[in-house]
């Protein structure tokens, strides 16, 4: 598997248009040698899950700043499961209050990164928690 690359879907579910964080994280992943598929703005959970399947990504990083994370994250996870893609590592970033983190983890998010999260930490966490590949 010498040519394997970690593939990450960076997605913006919901209608918020703040893509600064998503793009900065996408760049950090690229600079760490990962392949990033960026979906663009305003994606429905179905569109994100479908993109994750088609692109066969290892990771789906969801950026949500609208506050709709408790609605959107579980929906993305459910749709991924329905498509049999439950080995995709789910990360959530954005404006997420501490008290919502347990609910998001319960829903299937492996990591939650709030404002001011360190880029290197995000990349490290991602690489350390991949659920597949190398197998």
């Amino acid at each position: 598997m010498s040519h394997a690359k970690v593939r990450v879907l960076v997605a913006k579910p919901g209608l918020d248009s703040h893509d600064r964080g998503a793009k900065v994280v996408a760049r950090a992943y690229r600079d760490a040698g990962l392949e990033v598929v960026y979906t663009g703005l305003h994606q429905t959970p179905e569109e994100i899950a479908e993109a994750a399947v088609q692109e066969d990504v290892d990771v789906a990083a969801l950026s949500i700043l609208s506050g709709a994370h408790l609605t959107l994250v579980p929906e993305v996870v459910n749709r991924l499961r329905a498509k049999g893609a439950d080995d995709v590592l789910i990360l959530v970033g954005g404006i997420i209050p501490d008290e919502d983190v347990p609910a998001l983890k319960e829903a299937g998010a492996a990591g939650v990164f709030g404002p001011g999260a360190n880029l290197d930490e995000i990349v490290e966490f991602t690489l350390a928690n991949l659920r597949r590949r190398g197998a």
Partner: peptide, 8 residues
């Protein structure tokens, strides 16, 4: 690495 943006 790469950023693949065509899906946008």
């Amino acid at each position: 690495g790469a950023i693949l943006g065509d899906r946008i």
